[in-house]
Design a protein around this nucleic acid. Structure first.
Lengths: 231, 231
DNA sequence: AATATAAGGTGTCGAAATTACACCACTAAA
DNA sequence: TTTAGTGGTGTAATTTCGACACCTTATATT
C-alpha cells in the first residue's frame, strides 16, 4: 500500500557530516532513518530548520536530537539546492561538518523518533546513503582534506593527550597517503603549538611514546600572524 | 503612511557579490533598490529563488534581471541564516560571487522593476548596504583574498590582453599590500600559464609594456598536477 | 636471563623556493 | 634635448622541503 506523504513548498534543512577517528580509522556518523521517505536507509544526521532558529542553532539542535551529541563546533561548508533533491518537495539543505574525538563512553542515542539508531561508520567503504547524502559527504570530505593543509583541524579528532604517531596516522587517514616520519615530526614541532608533556603512553607492549597536547593559545598567536602574511 | 508588507514563512534568496577591476581599482556591483523594504538603499544584487529552479540557476537569472549581466561563472561561498536578517519574514540567503572584467561597452541595465539602477562601486569606501549585505560582502571579500593565493582568479578580472604591471596592481588591490616587481614577475612567469604576445600596449605616454594572455589550457594541466600534490 | 618483537626517536645533505634589493632602457611630452 | 614616468631585468643569501636508515627502549616470549 502506498502512503501519501505531505509535500513541501519550501523548506530549509541541515545535514551534518561529522568526522571521528578511532583505531587508526577515520569514521563518520550515520543514522538509520525511521521515517519516510528512505525509511530504514542510512543517512547523514539531518532535519528541517524551524522558523525561529538560526541555521547554526538548528545544526546543533538537529545533531543532538538525532545522535545525542552536542556542543560540537560545526561549520557550514556548502548548500545543496537542486530542485529534485527531495522527493516530497523543495528542500534546500545547508551542510555542516565537524571533527570530534570518538569517546567510547559517550553513547550515541537518538532522542527523537526520526532516527532508529546512530553509529560510526568508516569513511572507506560507505554504503549508499539516502537522498543525495553521498554527494554531500564527498563534498565535505574533500573540503576537510584541503583544510587540513592550512589549519590544525586534526586536533579535534584526537584525545586531549596524543602521541606524534597517532597524529601522523590521522593525517595519513585524511590525506590518504603515507608521510615520512622524520619530516612529519620536524614540521609539526616547528609550528610550536604542540606542548610536550611529562607523561608517556601506558598499556602498550612496546616502548611507550611521549604524549603531547595541542596548545590553543600558541596556535591562536601563530595564526594571527599567518593571516597577516597571507594578506 | 505605513504600508503593510506581506510576510514570508520561509523563503530562499540569492545575493551576488560581483567583483570587477577598472582603473587600478577593485569594484563591486551594487543596485539601487526600487522596492520595500530598504527602498532606495544600495544593496547587492539579490532576489528570491523560484520553486522550480536550482539555486545555481537562480543565481544566474537574478543577476541578469537586476543588472543585465549574464554568463558569469558564479560560485556560492556562504549561506546566511540568521532569524532576523529580513524584516518581512524568514529568508535564508545563499551568497554567490564572481569575478569579471569590467567592459565599458556592456551596459548595466536592470530588466526588472526591482532595481532602479546597477553600477560599479569601489570596494574601499563602500556605503552602508541594505539588510546584512555589508556582512555578506565582507565574507566574500575575505574568501577571494584567500583564494587568490592558490588559484589564478585574477585573470577573470583583467582584459584578455594585459600587462604584467596591470596584473600586479590587481594582486595588490585584492591583497591590499605592495609586492616586489621582480619577484612578482619571476613567479608569475614561472607558472607557465602566461602567454607572451607579439604586441605592446598602445596609447600610453611612456614606454609601452608587452601584452600577455592567460593560457587556460596550460593552467588546466598544471592545476591537475597540483591537485595530486595536495592529496 | 636471553631473545624476539614492535614501535619510538633522531640528523644530514642537496634541491628548490623565497626574499631582498637597484639600475638602465625606452617612449612621449614639454 | 631634457624630463617624467614606467618597463624590464639578475644575483646572492636564506629558508624550506624532501629523501633517506639506524639505534633505543619497552614488553612479551622462551
Amino acid at each position: 500500500m502506498e502512503v501519501k506523504l505531505p509535500t513541501f513548498d519550501s523548506v530549509f534543512s541541515i545535514d551534518c557530516v561529522i568526522f571521528g577517528f578511532e583505531a587508526g580509522e577515520l569514521k563518520i556518523l550515520l543514522i538509520e532513518r525511521n521515517e519516510e521517505p528512505f525509511k530504514d536507509w542510512l543517512a547523514l544526521p539531518g532535519y528541517i530548520v524551524s522558523q525561529d532558529e538560526s541555521i547554526d542553532d538548528a545544526a546543533e539542535r538537529i545533531l543532538y536530537e538525532l545522535t545525542g551529541l552536542r556542543d560540537l563546533h560545526m561549520q557550514q561548508f556548502h548548500t545543496f539546492g537542486e530542485v529534485k533533491r527531495h522527493p516530497q518537495g523543495r528542500v534546500i539543505t545547508v551542510a555542516y561538518y565537524a571533527l570530534i574525538r570518538i569517546n567510547g563512553q559517550k553513547e550515541l542515542k537518538p532522542v527523537t523518533q526520526y532516527a532508529k539508531s546512530a553509529f560510526w561508520h568508516p569513511v572507506n567503504d560507505l554504503p549508499k546513503l539516502a537522498f543525495d547524502h553521498s554527494e554531500i559527504f564527498n563534498t565535505g570530505f574533500n573540503k576537510i582534506r584541503r583544510r587540513l593543509n592550512y589549519q590544525p583541524i586534526a586536533f579535534e579528532l584526537l584525545p586531549e593527550k596524543f602521541t606524534l604517531t597517532q597524529l601522523q596516522s590521522l593525517y595519513e587517514a585524511v590525506l590518504n597517503k603515507k608521510l615520512d616520519k622524520r619530516n612529519f615530526r620536524k614540521k609539526m614541532l616547528s609550528y610550536g603549538f604542540l606542548k610536550e608533556l611529562d607523561e608517556k603512553q601506558k598499556g602498550v607492549s612496546y616502548r611507550a611514546a611521549k604524549l603531547y597536547k595541542f596548545d590553543r593559545r600558541k596556535y591562536a598567536k601563530i595564526f594571527q600572524n599567518e593571516l597577516n602574511l597571507v594578506q
